[in-house]
Nucleic acid binder design. Structure first.
Lengths: 344, 344
DNA sequence: TTGTACGCGTTATCAT
DNA sequence: ATGATAACGCGTACAA
């Protein structure tokens, strides 16, 4: 096949200069309508596709917003993609979804992408940006942290974050279980080697709630996901719960820090002939769509992911438009009471 | 903030030429180790990030393989991302996951990406490339169609496809229901306006199976997803099934063409006080992870998505290495009998 | 309205 | 071992 066809080929083919072709493609007004059509026809006929690398290199700016996702397989994020897409269609920004690999540094990726695509702004989805504030100074475009685990050093006023208060909401959910009369409440957090991240924050909230209800957290009831199984999967919840049941350790309620994982936990319980919620109450966290459709439907804390996605876009666009008011917008989660819990 | 810092700045800063900096970055051997370290230090200190657009433009080739996904929110694909990632790590190819928008033409995107990133190869995930064979001639790099709906005109020998035989597997699944004694089998296919695509193929197989078992397909039992609700979601299955139940139309088994949708269907049934499988048998399709953990676990046809992903990579790499043997590799699906079906 | 020529930031070739 | 310089393909200021 012929070596890649470029704008020059089109120009030559049409007997015009390259700039005329460029003008035709990019919808500039100062061009004869007739020659434009001739050029566009040639572009179609020769199946010419402009080289975006050259474009990006030349352009001093684009109209692109990137969403960087760490852990794209997380079903909780699934619900947000559509929202980003929809919201961004109402603006005149292009939307690019970029998956960042497990062992990549999201900020490095962001900086590279900023240069490569001349990004207007970035939304970080997931991941944890804690302790990387020094880097942020080098990110020269506006960005928003969406649902990133924030840790205890918010460095307020310097960046915009959209999130829920993981500790607080976890507290509320645990308190709800307490209010039902549960005292022996087990929890499955994230992997033990993750000292930061939402898994840890949610365990914090759990502990605080117990203490406030006069219950001493029992280390044996604080479990972690199996490091040998992919995190936040049903398989993980299933394995850990099986082990918990096998151990004979007593409990009446189980809090799994992600819905997706909770499904596996439920199955482990139901498979042994126990019932939910009669024998064990189970709660998840996130409020993904499927929680409602599981059997029994899952009691969970719903993060308002559509609203959060929408607000992320809104804030980012404002920042791009020159707003300098960095805030931390904390959304309230909603306790969804399903069929998986009952008063003791 | 300073205007973007480039390779020239590094060169100037170190008192060397740009080519030396380039050599240092890219690990060329013909460079003094001492100056390399000086340069690398400067790169770190000044937080220099090379511009990928310029790199891509200059480079005549990369080592990148792209996976193009249409419908990235489909949970069936979720299981494949990890596999792609893992498999590609064993090769020395870079992996880039590119989401293609609902209303984008995947081939246009592919061609643009090929030029932009100097791709080595492409894997198309999902979507349907039917009737676009003319375009394929313009894709100058190797590509593999993975789980794309292929339709009836395979144009064999001209491209490589990894898939399951949707018609046949749907036939097998339906036949299984028949073998259990079911005669009134409802099906929920894709949206009615989708004349092509897997939804339609699976309805084909369903009809054929019924006919071969002496059952005349009942048009009233052939349903489609609600066009007002996102396709392949639990919400869609829930709504359609609710309506089916309300209609009073009799049936003993329900075949939903995607597991994710089937969950919603199950919930609709269970919510009305009916039981699965005692009152209705339900089957899904795809064999996603959650099928096993649903309650009751879902009888389904499992597409071997890890194997398919692995084979896709393997074939693509072979094609890149000069293999010209295009084949259509059809994987066998596996009937997973769960708790959601029973003999009549 | 159109064409020429330069520069975007990088890598590779060719000198030195 | 190192530095100048020519591409890579495109957009645009400037000239015509």
């Amino acid at each position: 096949m012929m070596g890649n066809i470029t704008i020059k080929d089109i120009a030559r083919h049409c007997g015009v200069g390259v700039s005329t072709v460029s003008r035709a493609m990019n919808g500039h007004p100062d061009i004869n309508e007739e020659t434009r059509e001739r050029i566009m026809a040639a572009i179609r006929d020769l199946h010419y596709i402009p080289n975006n690398s050259a474009r990006n290199l030349k352009r001093s700016e684009s109209n692109t917003i990137a969403v960087l996702v760490k852990g794209i397989e997380n079903p909780f994020f699934q619900g947000m993609f559509k929202t980003f897409e929809r919201e961004l269609k109402n603006t005149n920004y292009d939307f690019i979804l970029h998956r960042v690999d497990e062992n990549e540094d999201e900020l490095q990726v962001a900086m590279a992408l900023e240069k490569e695509k001349r990004l207007k702004g970035i939304i970080f989805l997931g991941g944890s940006i804690i302790e990387k504030e020094a880097y942020m100074k080098h990110l020269t475009i506006p960005f928003v942290l969406c649902t990133a685990a924030l840790g205890s050093e918010p460095w307020p006023g310097h960046y915009t974050a959209i999130t829920v208060d993981d500790v607080k909401e976890s507290y509320r959910l645990t308190a709800y279980l307490c209010s039902l009369g549960h005292k022996k409440i087990a929890i499955i957090g994230g992997r033990e080697d993750q000292t930061s991240g939402i898994g840890q924050l949610r365990i914090e909230g759990y502990k605080e709630a117990l203490l406030d209800h006069g219950i001493t957290p029992d280390p044996e009831l604080i479990l972690h996901m199996d490091p040998d199984i992919q995190e936040f999967t049903p398989a993980n919840g299933y394995a850990v719960t099986k082990e918990l049941l096998r151990s004979g350790k007593e409990f009446t309620a189980l809090f799994v820090v992600s819905d997706n994982t909770a499904f596996g936990a439920c199955k482990a319980i139901l498979e042994t002939g126990k019932r939910i919620p009669e024998d064990y109450s189970v709660v998840g966290f996130d409020g993904i769509e499927l929680a409602r459709y599981y059997q029994p439907s899952l009691t969970t804390m719903r993060q308002p992911c559509e609203e959060m996605a929408r607000e992320s876009i809104k804030r980012l666009v404002a920042l791009i438009d020159g707003d300098t008011d960095h805030q931390m917008k904390i959304f309230e989660a909603e306790l969804i009471v399903g069929e998986s819990t009952r008063p003791l």
